[in-house]
């Protein structure tokens, strides 16, 4: 059980809270307090829209311990509209085949359960962008 680790990440996992660099203006996710572009301090919080597109994807058949019950599942690199790329699972695909360039949006889903009676870890996944939301 790593209760505090998951608790600590809730702003990122539930709301995509990152940072914006005061100096060069680049948007940063996840937060790191130092801008990866200009190496200056960057501590101003910035909440991402959750909209982006699939940059690459892979369907995982051999899952690691803790994820077996979900296999096969599809993971992706998602390029957020504000610039950063993050790694997340795709969900709610239905019959749709994932493809590079596909518009997606963030949703909150169960990532896994820790142990037999453990807590449920929630976090971001991305689904195909709904037409009504565009």
């Amino acid at each position: 059980m790593e209760l505090s680790r998951h608790w600590r990440l809730q702003d990122q996992r539930y709301r995509l809270v990152g940072e914006v660099c005061d100096t060069c203006g680049v948007k940063i996710f996840p937060p790191r307090d130092i801008c990866p572009e200009c190496s200056k301090p960057a501590q101003e919080l910035y909440t991402f829209s959750g909209r982006g597109e699939v940059y690459s994807f892979s369907t995982v058949y051999n899952a690691p311990a803790g994820y077996e019950e979900y296999a096969p599942y599809t993971v992706a690199l998602v390029k957020l509209e504000e610039g950063p790329v993050l790694t997340a699972q795709l969900t709610d695909l239905g019959d749709q085949e994932p493809e590079i360039g596909m518009p997606v949006e963030m949703v909150t889903r169960k990532l896994r359960t820790e142990g037999d009676q453990g807590m449920i870890v929630y976090g971001y996944k991305f689904r195909p962008a709904l037409a009504a939301a565009v």
Binding site: P30, Y70, T87
Partner: peptide, 23 residues
């Protein structure tokens, strides 16, 4: 926190690179 917790295996990371490379 940002890769492995999302169910990404080491193979999957390389698969993400390969898929993009092929495209």
């Amino acid at each position: 926190d940002y890769e492995a917790d999302h169910g990404v295996t080491f193979v999957a990371l390389n698969a993400l690179l390969m898929n993009r490379y092929m495209m």
